[in-house]
Design a protein around this nucleic acid. Sequence first.
DNA 1: CTGAAAGCGCTTACAG
DNA 2: CTGAAAGCGCTTACAG
Lengths: 348, 348
Amino acid sequence: MRKSVSLKDIAQKAGVSTALVSYVLNNTRENRINKETAQKIRIIAGELNYHINQVARSLKTNKTYTIGLIVSNISNPFSASLARIIENESEKYKYTTIIGSSDEDVQKFEKLVNTMVNRQVDGLILSPPSQSENIILKLQQQGIPFVLLDRYYPDIKTNYIALDNYNASFEATQHLIDGGRKRIGMISYRSDLFHLQERKRGYVAALKKNSISFSKNWLKLVDIINKKSTIETAMDELLSIEPAVDAVLLGSNQIAVNSLKYINTLPIKVPKDLAVISFDQAEMLDVFYSPVTYIKQPLEEIGQLAIKSLIDCIHDPSSLTALNLKAELIIQQSTGALTTTGKLFDPH
Amino acid sequence: MRKSVSLKDIAQKAGVSTALVSYVLNNTRENRINKETAQKIRIIAGELNYHINQVARSLKTNKTYTIGLIVSNISNPFSASLARIIENESEKYKYTTIIGSSDEDVQKFEKLVNTMVNRQVDGLILSPPSQSENIILKLQQQGIPFVLLDRYYPDIKTNYIALDNYNASFEATQHLIDGGRKRIGMISYRSDLFHLQERKRGYVAALKKNSISFSKNWLKLVDIINKKSTIETAMDELLSIEPAVDAVLLGSNQIAVNSLKYINTLPIKVPKDLAVISFDQAEMLDVFYSPVTYIKQPLEEIGQLAIKSLIDCIHDPSSLTALNLKAELIIQQSTGALTTTGKLFDPH
DNA sequence: CTGAAAGCGCTTACAG
DNA sequence: CTGAAAGCGCTTACAG
């Protein structure tokens, strides 16, 4: 059975008040306590194997040192990496993290938010699914500190740490054009999430800037869940257009996994027949036979800034951090340049 | 500011005691409360947007409905998948999960355990790193419910849910032999963790059973952290033995990532020159040009049983669950069979 | 059907 | 340098 030694037990054994024990163990009154008494208290605490009851402390101090993190799905490598960084970072500030997965479901999301709020988290880091505006607004009105991660609503004034998706997409597309690609497709999600809109917008803008007239059937949208077969269909369609696309921008790592697996089964070669760029980092991108060029999000920075801005906000509710970070294009084999005659460029 | 509406606020507004409010909102005394009073209390609670303070409830009930999960690294796909399943499963029982990563570091592990214990988790699910016996024993002696996950100490009687690693490894090796492979290497971790010993033992036993004399330089051990270069060296060595190995068993998904990336740069073909099997499921195994045969752990079952046995143990400390689950070998292209003349077998 | 009261294990302003 | 005491927001045995 869990006996749970309390301050009272120590106080009794030491013949002092619980207040004094509390002061000593928390080092709250550094030099204003008799050294010997303090020493004695510490020894007894050690002997009894005392561990503070954080629940009791939290109730009294109204501070749990807990942060709630809600991602789309913790088993997605993107979320998992971010979660890991946030875990490390929050630990530096003595915070513990509770993690939940919303599965892009607004009901689940709301339920998770409520669970975490009931548990008196000091703040939240949220990747909201589509249609969560009201939940975000309610949170704001309740005065609960939070920061949006990866996604945000441009019309709601909140803390957020996100990617500059427009430019990330623009530069990736530009890289394909610079490599001699003329017909560039994109597979992305059918969603009203702002960051996904931005990815499409950057892609289309880059085409326009280079006087490539965007063809509607170059842009394939798939559902954000249940992706495999629709992605294969999308890829089939992109490759059966006359003339077929010679490059494709993949809007997420999940789209990339399914696309790359499928490409392996097709009689086409990357990068000769098709150049490929993916959003997000993932180990599978390097395991593909032609290591895939990708848009690298600065995850470390995102995680660190998310924690920092959240803690700023906990300390000063009027603080506001709204950042669109720059992505880095990691160029690998999958976007090998073509010569003017359409052959793969080979410097040797 | 967070005003936090309390039971007292509702009680005052309704002109009743906090006890009654508590009974109503918790449905503790179903039919023994005046319907109208109950209704009134519910309405007022709604109007005031009351949310229970779980911290206060936990202090009183000595139950937090929180489970602590410690894995090696949450950003590893294996841990992330398991974490996701555990999250889902614990939610069914109204539990919330706190996750921590030990990085195979026993100090970090102990610190995480203590943090979680101080937070009064109702139980723990642990993948302990090497040398954690004392921490496990201490936990046991404190009477804190826990279940070991993926790993366990055969000499300590605890709840655990693990894989039958010996047979998993044995069967994988047998499959390679059945496919005509004669010289089978293995890359695994240098570690005293029991489950890793079992993987080696199964591999060696399968060779023996088939009268293949095990050559010491077929087994390469790499450090459990800082793996990339040592794995490449190990692979180089396996391939430069005279005669080189014609198959390799990769002891974890991290070993597989690095091995497969490296194989892509070498002038050898899978499965013709080298058959490959990996432990654990991971999307990158399917993205490799020759989809990799792997030892699939029943993650869903592992996660479900972990939660179930933990909850059993919370309710009845004398309950004990010790399971070594059966793995499933998912056979893909990377272990294509050889004919008796050593060519790749092709049914067409 | 309802309420007064104790108490979970802490912290901390206050008094001495 | 130390302690008595209030109180955080709940639950629940008990009494009526």
